[in-house]
Simulated assay, not measured.
Amino acid sequence: MEIRTNAFVQRIMQNEGTKEYQRKMQSYRKGQFFVYKCSEGFDTIGYGHLCTPQEVQEYKNGLSELKAITLLQRDLLEAENDARRLFEINRHSLEVQQLLVEMVFQLGANTASKFKQFKAALDAKDYNRAALELIDSRWYKQTPNRVQLHVDVLRKQ
């Protein structure tokens, strides 16, 4: 079962900010993506790629759409591998697997690993309790609309 479907990747691109949105925010101009500060103050480019200090310098003249999509694909593969390591994702539906990959993509593996009560609820397949754990998180307060979509997925299980 393919987790990183075209629809999933398109949803991530939408959630991270379309070119039109980024154009409005001045991080996409002249056909190139430029480094911007995410809501947590980290250097980011394209579709949510967290930049290393070296990449900030490398991308100072912009990044093509093709390169931004390539970075996204690489980041999602890494997030999927981390989600497999942190959660027993194969025990869950495709929608929950995608939720977990997006969670790790957005938060990073280190932060996602701190959701211990959420993981315990998932392990018990108590999806309603898992949803409540997400609602009770700092992540929900930071990006409520995005996390609410994950809550809705869990509540439909």
Rank of each mutant, 00 (worst) to 15 (best):
121 A>T: 08
91 R>M: 09
107 L>Q: 12
42 F>N: 10
115 F>D: 02
6 N>C: 00
26 Q>D: 13
68 A>M: 07
77 L>M: 09
73 Q>W: 12
138 R>N: 13
152 D>T: 08
6 N>E: 15
76 L>W: 15
3 I>H: 09
47 Y>A: 01
124 A>F: 11
23 R>M: 12
150 H>F: 15
56 V>P: 05
119 K>V: 00
89 I>F: 09
55 E>Y: 12
98 Q>V: 10
43 D>A: 11
109 A>M: 05
65 E>Q: 09
105 F>C: 01
84 R>I: 15
78 E>H: 08
31 G>S: 04
124 A>G: 03
2 E>N: 06
75 D>L: 03
117 Q>H: 12
56 V>T: 12
18 T>P: 10
21 Y>W: 11
139 W>L: 02
93 S>T: 14
146 R>T: 09
104 V>L: 07
140 Y>S: 00
157 Q>N: 11
113 S>H: 05
31 G>M: 11
59 Y>V: 01
91 R>C: 04
137 S>M: 04
29 R>F: 09
88 E>C: 03
68 A>V: 07
15 N>V: 10
88 E>N: 13
44 T>L: 11
95 E>G: 00
64 S>C: 09
50 L>N: 03
26 Q>Y: 14
50 L>Y: 15
121 A>Q: 08
61 N>Q: 13
92 H>I: 05
144 P>Y: 13
63 L>E: 10
123 D>R: 01
88 E>K: 09
39 S>W: 11
133 E>R: 03
49 H>V: 04
128 N>K: 07
25 M>L: 09
131 A>M: 08
85 R>N: 12
103 M>E: 05
127 Y>F: 15
66 L>C: 01
153 V>H: 03
117 Q>L: 12
28 Y>G: 01
90 N>C: 02
59 Y>I: 00
104 V>R: 03
154 L>D: 04
67 K>M: 14
52 T>R: 10
148 Q>F: 12
108 G>H: 07
56 V>A: 07
70 T>F: 13
78 E>A: 06
58 E>Q: 14
